[in-house]
């Protein structure tokens, strides 16, 4: 299925958010996920199913002033 991930359209192989974070090669502890403008905390990733057309943002806290 196709999703919008961080502003780009991609073909997503994972069915759940946990899988997507893994698919992208990210360390889960550093990722903040937002699905269709709703923040999804890490304990809910496993139960969050990805649907065609979802807008997903994977973010992280970085250095800043």
């Amino acid at each position: 299925m196709k999703i919008r991930l961080n502003g780009r359209t991609i073909e997503c192989r994972s069915s759940r958010l946990t899988g997507l974070v893994r698919e992208m090669g990210l360390a889960p502890s550093s990722v903040v996920a937002e699905v269709n403008l709703e923040v999804v905390t890490q304990e809910k990733w496993e139960s969050t199913w990805i649907k065609d057309g979802d807008e997903i943002e994977l973010l992280s806290f970085v250095g800043g002033g």
């Binding site: 961080n6 990210l26 360390a27 550093s30 970085v62 250095g63 800043g64």
Partner: peptide, 15 residues
């Protein structure tokens, strides 16, 4: 701290 889109594939630890 600031918040940004992740770099895909980055294994950086959370700040």
């Amino acid at each position: 701290v600031a918040l940004r889109r992740v770099d895909m594939g980055s294994k950086d630890e959370n700040i």
